[in-house]
């Protein structure tokens, strides 16, 4: 790949790693995984269920907060502080900057999730003293969670390429909530009538589909995840992310930097 994209990505990663706020969030997520053990002990027989449910939910929520938190600052902060000027006056293309930024953040999120996941597995190990075969599905759930993060952070990047950080955060979080009900939204759309049906269907298909990426409860019940779903979700996340990044590139490519 393009060397400049990689340099920008690694600098973005370095920035995130040196940001102290991040550590607080990760610490909090780990704490919650630990708390899951306590809650689990109260609800006898379903300790494992509670640990997986609560642990994965914590990973997912804190990860989303981190993804939005860093995602919105990626571009807008560089514009506000004018750090972008000295980058773009070099042989760096604007799309290279956007793609590099995105990859850097994606890397950060993967590493973050890794640490948070350690907390969940630690809690599981504490409960059962050894890993069960079905625990592998927890890995799949975590993989899906990472896919969610990638989509969210691409969206945050897209929004921050044309709007203020605060608004971008609101947009991104709203889409996260709406996207979690994407399947229901498509259900609503099929029930709509006439012209509004096309509109509703279009909107329902444009909203990121987080429903299929959330398998926490079925994993907690040790239900296997079909291989096809893993494949489709991976492809879907890749396409959706690419779409959002392309959108960000298109906007950014024509933007006047104040």
């Amino acid at each position: 790949m393009n060397a400049r994209v990689i340099h920008i990505a690694s600098n973005t990663f370095r920035e995130a790693v040196r940001d102290r706020v991040l550590y607080n969030l990760i610490a909090f997520a780990l704490l919650l995984s630990g708390a899951a053990i306590l809650v689990g002990q109260i609800s006898i027989e379903i300790e494992k269920l509670v640990v997986i449910n609560l642990g994965l939910t914590a990973v997912s929520l804190f990860g989303v907060v981190i993804a939005i938190f860093i995602g919105i600052g990626l571009v807008s902060k560089e514009i506000d502080r004018r750090t972008l000027y000295t980058v773009l006056s070099r042989p760096v293309r604007r799309w290279e900057f956007i793609v590099g930024k995105f990859l850097g953040l994606a890397g950060t999120l993967v590493v973050n999730t890794f640490f948070m996941a350690m907390g969940v597995f630690g809690a599981l190990l504490y409960l059962a003293h050894h890993f069960h075969k079905a625990d592998a599905w927890v890995l799949v759930a975590l993989y899906f969670i990472i896919l969610q993060f990638l989509i969210i952070c691409a969206l945050a990047l897209l929004f921050s390429s044309f709007s203020s950080p605060l608004l971008s955060a609101v947009f991104a979080f709203a889409l996260f909530v709406i996207g979690s009900f994407a399947e229901d939204l498509r259900g609503f759309a099929t029930m709509a009538q006439g012209g509004s049906r096309w509109l509703a269907t279009g909107a329902a298909y444009l909203v990121p589909n987080f429903s299929a990426l959330n398998v926490i409860s079925s994993v907690a019940h040790e239900q296997p995840i079909p291989g096809h779903l893993i494949l489709y979700n991976t492809l879907y996340a890749a396409l959706y992310t690419a779409m959002a990044v392309c959108g960000a590139v298109l906007i950014f490519e024509h933007r006047n930097l104040k």
Binding site: R186, Y232, N233, Y236, L239, Y240, A242, M243, C246, H254
Partner: peptide
């Protein structure tokens, strides 16, 4: 060139994701 490439890619990804979504919905 960048604008055209990004536009084409965006459209392709949008269509692709909608098609995949239909597959996922059928499965699920």
């Amino acid at each position: 060139r960048t604008t055209i490439t990004a536009s084409v890619l965006l459209t392709a990804c949008m269509l692709g994701s909608a098609l995949l979504l239909r597959r996922v919905d059928q499965m699920r």
